[in-house]
Amino acid sequence: MSRRSLVSGTRRARPTVLGLLLCLPFLIAWADSWEGLRQASSHVTSIEARFVQKKNLPILARPFVSRGRFVFQAPGSLRWEYDNPVRSVLLMHEGAVKRYLKEGSAWREDAGVSLSAMQTVLSEILNWQRGRFDANPRFEASLQAGQETRVTLVPKDAAMKKMIRSIELTLSREQAGVMKSVRIAEEERSFTLIEFQQVRINRPQPASLFKDVE
């Protein structure tokens, strides 16, 4: 997350220096233990952010970049929307997942081959947003506290290892309960990096955002 986006994300609150000093121990400590992660995430009722997705492949000289918007509303609603280069929206609400694709000026609901896989992925993202990084028994989760706290998930299952080598979640030091980036590695030189920007938390989100494409 850029410094600028962080500033814009927190401008609304305009914390005083005293307030910052009081919060500092909590901000530093929130990402240092599984319990700290769960505690911090329990205070986050909604997240909205822009994201930049960079796909790296051995045959790409530079990453293939997609941009969009991410909205989460506790307990289980997500909107994952790509603005470019291909407009699409993934919605998850009350356990149901839908994908829409923009065709010309209209949206078409897509029941393509990857939708069931995306249901699993979105459920996993929901776990992460709740601070339950170690909830999935199919992954070995480890926490590395430091300058930038990282959670690394490695598949236990040999079949899944062929699909995903690791998932690395970098947590925001500045915003408790917020992820800064996600790196999903399929192989050493084949990975997807998603960076979140302009993150705003705990703003009420209408339910329609997670049910309707428009």
Binding site: K55, L57, S66, Y82, V86, S88, S114, V121, E186, T192
Partner: peptide
């Protein structure tokens, strides 16, 4: 050639 989902999963 590589085919992937919009989310970047290589198929």
């Amino acid at each position: 050639t590589v085919l992937m989902t919009l989310e970047g999963w290589v198929l």
